[in-house]
Amino acid sequence: MGAAISPEPPASVADAPPKNWVDRWAPESWRPFLRLGRFDRPIGMWLLLFPCLWSQALAQVNSGDHYPDLTYVLLFAIGALAMRASGCAYNDYVDRDIDARVQRTASRPLASGQIAPAAALAFIIISALVGLAVLVQFNSFTIWLAIASLLIVAVYPFAKRVTSYPQIVLGLAFNWGALVGWAAIKGSIGLPALALYAGCVFWTVGYDTIYAHQDKEDDALLGLGSTALKFGEDTVSFVGGMYALAGVMWLVAGALAGAHLVYFLAVVLVFLQMSWQVSTLDIDDPANCLRRFKSNRDVGLALLAGLVADMALSWFAGLS
């Protein structure tokens, strides 16, 4: 793959965090591929991983378990890392000509010519094979359920060319783990998992609308669709509605799974965090949008903490 890299690649990708570990520590010949897989921007990996972990934990709460199965946690973490890398590389492969015309994405490895398309395809396949190696550790129902998501993943990069709602397609694809985590524990799909998945889709539509405001001028010039362009000045109300629906569905998921008070308190904290995002959002300030988008990692951590606490407290209650 090294032969496909330009001799003087840019020092970093424009939308990557400054002084990220890839730019500082990775061997120079690896950097374009690590950037292609978004290893310099870990927020997307967290947002992909959390629905898996939430779903696993919710299933274990429902089963009366007292702590998360750490083997599954590790498998989901490796799988999220690999599949996010493969999915992002695939997205960049499809969008390489568009990305070259957008200021924020023009420095990405494919758009800037640091990596040849054939090398990117090889990276996509290798990353996907790592994900497959993880996937086959689960039960057969979970394997086929996860494979079914590939159709939505394949369609997603083309959605913004034909609809103003590509964020919905992203939400459907990006949160499939909310079904997979439950299936890994239970061997089937239950109503709590479906409610959790619906909430996660609403959540993603909300936070990705915020994210899309960074590119709205370029997207408008290129004739691409997004909910940021669709709702414009009404974005705050739209995102607020999406976040409210997410919170309601997460409450429903917990009730259906038999969760306890600590989980519902965590959902309340999550809703307060999302309310902060909405109330302080400035859609005309890209830095403001990016910060609020990235703060969704706090949403993920809070909800996961609530589920883990639910299991732990039920264990303590059993001892008394």
Rank of each mutant, 00 (worst) to 15 (best):
M1T: 08
G2H: 13
G2S: 11
I5F: 05
S6P: 01
P7A: 06
P7C: 10
P10Q: 02
A11C: 02
A14L: 11
A14Y: 09
A14M: 06
A16H: 02
A16L: 08
P18H: 11
N20F: 05
N20R: 03
W21L: 12
V22I: 11
A26T: 00
A26V: 05
R31D: 05
F33Y: 15
R35M: 09
F39L: 15
R41K: 13
I43M: 07
W46P: 03
L48Y: 00
L48Q: 04
F50S: 01
A57C: 13
A57F: 06
A59Y: 06
Q60L: 07
V61T: 15
V61P: 10
D65S: 14
H66F: 15
F76P: 01
A77F: 14
A77P: 02
G79W: 03
N91M: 12
D92R: 08
D92G: 03
D95Y: 02
D95V: 08
R96M: 14
R96N: 08
D97H: 13
I98M: 15
R101P: 05
A106G: 10
S107F: 01
A111N: 04
A111E: 07
A116L: 13
P117Q: 12
L121F: 14
V130N: 06
L132N: 00
L132H: 01
F138Y: 13
N139F: 14
T142H: 08
I147G: 07
L150I: 15
V153T: 06
V155D: 02
V155T: 08
R161F: 09
T163I: 05
S164W: 15
S164T: 05
Q167G: 04
V169F: 08
G171D: 02
F174D: 04
G181A: 10
W182L: 07
I185L: 11
I185Y: 12
I185R: 10
I185C: 09
K186D: 11
G187R: 01
S188W: 11
Y197N: 03
A198Q: 00
G199A: 08
G199D: 09
G199V: 06
V201K: 01
V205G: 04
Y207P: 11
D208M: 07
T209V: 00
H213L: 02
D215H: 08
K216T: 12
D219C: 10
A220L: 14
L224K: 01
L224W: 01
S226G: 08
T227H: 04
L229V: 00
T235L: 04
S237K: 15
F238M: 14
V239H: 04
M249H: 10
A253L: 13
A257N: 07
A259V: 05
Y263A: 06
Y263N: 06
F264K: 09
L265T: 08
L269A: 13
F271Q: 14
L272P: 01
L272T: 10
Q273R: 14
W276N: 09
W276L: 14
A287L: 11
L290A: 07
K294I: 01
S295A: 15
R297T: 12
G300A: 03
A302Q: 14
L304Q: 05
G306E: 02
L307W: 03
V308S: 04
A309I: 00
D310P: 14
D310Y: 03
L313E: 09
W315A: 15
L319G: 05
